[in-house]
Design a protein around this nucleic acid. Structure first.
Lengths: 118, 118
DNA sequence: TCAACATATGAGCAATTGTTCATATGATTA
DNA sequence: TAATCATATGAACAATTGCTCATATGTTGA
């Protein structure tokens, strides 16, 4: 790799320009981490369940036909990334989407997929 | 929202309503697959390199300080998901973003992250 | 206080994933 | 044609991930 760099097979000036344009490494890493959360169908399904409703853990599990434990594990990840939030009411905890961006991000993905149908 | 319902373990009617609202399983799976592609920092970095420029494989590799092979493997995944496209010019293949949605999806993620700074 | 319920969490395992290494395919030019 | 450059790809490996099972934490009411 660096051999080729030295041998000038690489467009030096373009590469330098591109490197200068790159955002902060940490930002890119965090961005990837965020999308990783969306990149699991269980979590996507949970977010769809919460799209318009506030739902407690057991009902999410029942809706998706999965165990309470599996849902709880995923909710933790969603919560850590501020994609969902929980509100305690007695013994139960009602979950809902944390902000509008969640809906927007999902909508963007759907648009891309629609365009793929051809 | 419906506050005080009956104390059954599962709120049957809510669950039935939620299940009826759920989109097609296949769509949700595809959506997760799409976001999975965004969920890797190497691929995110590649997409940023291609944000405004058409760049050949070797230059992408040089910009990101990675091997040509690693980049090529990731480009294949990006290509399969129609996130980037390649244009052959002689021996080289110039890659660029495939459509506007790629930029939009990245922008949405960034907005969410900005809001997290607090 | 205890029992019942709702949710969270740690350990372990199978499945998936990203990189490296070696090699193959494809394109140009001597 | 052969030699070389540019990119693609298959196999192998380590690292990560999502689920299950068992158990822990937290809440309410008797």
């Amino acid at each position: 790799m660096s051999d080729n760099f030295e041998n000038g097979q690489v467009h030096q000036d373009l590469v330098m320009k591109l490197q200068a344009q790159m955002p902060d490494e940490t930002k890119l890493y965090d961005l990837a981490e965020l999308y990783k959360v969306f990149g699991d169908s269980t979590r996507i399904r949970i977010m769809y369940v919460l799209f318009d409703d506030e739902v407690c853990v057991y009902d999410i599990a029942a809706t998706l036909n999965m165990t309470q434990s599996a849902i709880s594990h995923q909710l933790r990840i969603l919560k850590q990334n501020r994609l969902v939030k929980g509100r305690r009411v007695g013994k139960q905890i009602y979950y809902s989407l944390d902000d509008e961006h969640v809906r927007s991000i999902i909508a963007m993905g759907r648009e891309h997929l629609e365009e793929d149908d051809r």
